[in-house]
Design a protein around this nucleic acid. Structure first.
Length: 300
DNA sequence: TAAGATAAGAGGGACAT
DNA sequence: ATGTCAGTCTTATCTTA
C-alpha cells in the first residue's frame, strides 16, 4: 500500500500494515502512523480486498519473519519416552541436526539480504538512484555481509554506506550528510561504517570531482551557465595549486560559485549558496577569506 | 537584514609513545 | 593500543554596514 508518510514526507513511501500488532508503519522511516487498524473498509478498497482474498494470506511483516518460534534439534541419546535411541536413528538425527543448523545460517543471511535490499529499494526511490548504483550497492553489501561486517551494526547503516561508496566510485556527488538524513541515521554512524567498509573490503574510492560538485550546487541554487563555467575555471586553478587539499569539496564549490556570482553580477545570499551546498555560512566565509588571501587576482 | 567576527566544541587523521 | 596535536567544520552569539 502506497501512501504519503507525514513524518518523512516521502510521497512514494510504502506503508506496511502489520496485522499482528495492529499497526500501520512507514517502511521508510519506521514511523508508526496509526497503532490501531480500526476498520478494513478504511484501509482497503474492493479491488485490494479481492487481491487479498485471491492470494489468501495476510500481509506479513518482514520484521516478524519466524514469529520468534523456532526449534533446535538438540543432542540427546534418549527419545521422548526416555528409552535409548538406536545408533542408526542417532546418526540420522545427527545429520538432520547438521542440516538444520546449515539451513538456519542460510536463512539468517538471506533474511538479512532481503531486508537490506528492501531498504535499498526505498533509498533508490527516495534519492533517484540509477540501476547501476543500486547494483553496485548490492554487490558491496553482499561482500560486507560475507565478511561479517553487518553484525553489530544496523542494516540501514551498512546499506547507506554501500550507497555512498557506490556513488563515490561512479562519481556521483552525494554527501554523507545527505545520505544520513535520507536514511534517518546519524552522520557519525554513517561515516564510521563507511570507513569500516572501505578499509575491511579494501575499496579504493576516487576523490570527488570538484567540477561535479560545482554543477550540483549551481543547479540547486539555480545559477546560470556563465557563472558555472567561470567557477569551473577558478576551481581548476585551485586544484592545480593544491589549495583544495583537505577542504570539504562542497565548501570549495560553494565558494568559487559565490565569487563567480560577485564577478558576473549575479546576486545570491551567502546563506542561500551555503544551504545549497550543505555547509554553514561560517565555513563559506572562511573559504572566501582563504581564497582572497591566496588568489589575489580574485579581488576586483 | 546580510555580512563579518569570534569563541567553543565535535570528530577524525597524523604522528609519537 | 593510546594520547596529543593541528586543522576543519559546526553551532551560537554579537557586531557592523
Amino acid at each position: 500500500m502506497i501512501k504519503k508518510c507525514s513524518s518523512c514526507n516521502n510521497e512514494r513511501t510504502t506503508i506496511i500494515t502489520d496485522p499482528e500488532s495492529a499497526e500501520i508503519v512507514c517502511s521508510n522511516c519506521g514511523m508508526v502512523i496509526s497503532d490501531k487498524i480500526e476498520d478494513n473498509r478504511v484501509l482497503f478498497n474492493d479491488e485490494q480486498r479481492n487481491e487479498r482474498s485471491r492470494t489468501g494470506g495476510t500481509l506479513s511483516s518482514l520484521a516478524s519473519y519466524d514469529m520468534g518460534l523456532s526449534t533446535i534439534i538438540g543432542r540427546t541419546e534418549k527419545d521422548s519416552t526416555g528409552n535409548k535411541i538406536d545408533s542408526e536413528t542417532l546418526s540420522t538425527m545427527k545429520r538432520l541436526r547438521t542440516w538444520d543448523l546449515r539451513m538456519r545460517v542460510y536463512d539468517s543471511t538471506s533474511r538479512n539480504l532481503i531486508q537490506a535490499f528492501n531498504e535499498l529499494d526505498i533509498l533508490k526511490d527516495k534519492l533517484a538512484l540509477s540501476d547501476v548504483i543500486a547494483e553496485k550497492t548490492a554487490y558491496i553489501y553482499r561482500k560486507a555481509q560475507e565478511r561479517g561486517l553487518v553484525r553489530g551494526r544496523s542494516i540501514s547503516a551498512i546499506v547507506d554506506s554501500a550507497v555512498y561508496i557506490a556513488c563515490r566510485e561512479l562519481q556521483i556527488p552525494k554527501t554523507l550528510t545527505e545520505l544520513a538524513s535520507a536514511c534517518n541515521i546519524r552522520r557519525k554512524v554513517l561515516s564510521r561504517s563507511c570507513r569500516i567498509l572501505i578499509s575491511e573490503l579494501d575499496i579504493k574510492i576516487p576523490i570527488i570531482d570538484p567540477i561535479k560538485c560545482i554543477v550540483k550546487v549551481a543547479n540547486k541554487a539555480s545559477l546560470n551557465e556563465k557563472t558555472k563555467r567561470q567557477a569551473a575555471d577558478v576551481m581548476d586553478n585551485l586544484t592545480k595549486k593544491e589549495i583544495s587539499a583537505g577542504k570539504n569539496p562542497m565548501g570549495l564549490a560553494a565558494t568559487v560559485l559565490y565569487i563567480s556570482c560577485l564577478n558576473t553580477g549575479v546576486y545570491i545570499r551567502q546563506a542561500d549558496i551555503a544551504h545549497a551546498a550543505g555547509i554553514t555560512e561560517v565555513t563559506l566565509r572562511n573559504r572566501i577569506q582563504d581564497l582572497k588571501d591566496r588568489l589575489p587576482q580574485l579581488n576586483n
